[in-house]
């Protein structure tokens, strides 16, 4: 009897730690959105810590419900987020770069600019 009580206690403790961790990651994302200077840095803060944040929140939910079926569903939900998050981040980041919604003074290297310059130099003006 004590054994099962202990197991319950441990699982609940793990779940609460994971919940707090997920909450902290959301908080960090919010702080990053406010504090970071330009579009691309904000993208880092807003999208990326959530990969871990969502995983810990979902795992906490699965542990609380104590069921393997929920673990499967949770991993599925996380996997779908893994598939979609980089796509949206890439599209926003790329359009941000192309429409120059960024602060160049914050960049120490810009190897994409040199590639763009090299290529646009080679294109005859009639096509460019």
């Amino acid at each position: 009897m004590f054994d099962s009580l202990d197991a319950d206690l441990i699982l609940d403790a793990v779940a609460s730690v994971l919940l707090v961790l997920g909450g902290l990651m959301s908080l960090a994302a919010g702080v990053g959105l406010v504090r970071l200077p330009d579009l691309h840095s904000r993208m880092h803060a807003a999208t990326k810590p959530q990969v871990l944040g969502l995983l810990s929140l979902l795992l906490a939910a699965a542990i609380t419900w104590r069921s393997w079926e929920w673990v499967a569903i949770v991993l599925l939900a996380w996997g779908l987020q893994l598939l979609t998050a980089p796509v949206s981040a890439h599209v926003v980041g790329r359009s941000g770069y192309r429409t120059k919604h960024m602060r160049r003074d914050l960049l120490t290297h810009d190897e994409l600019a040199s590639a763009v310059e090299r290529i646009s130099r080679d294109i005859p003006p009639s096509r460019g």
């Binding site: 504090r35 200077p37 803060a45 120490t108």
Partner: peptide
């Protein structure tokens, strides 16, 4: 990244590699 957001904030320097 969370630490950078909290501690470095607006002074962060980035690179495109």
């Amino acid at each position: 990244v969370s630490w950078i957001a909290v501690a470095v904030g607006p002074k962060v320097k980035n690179s495109i590699i």
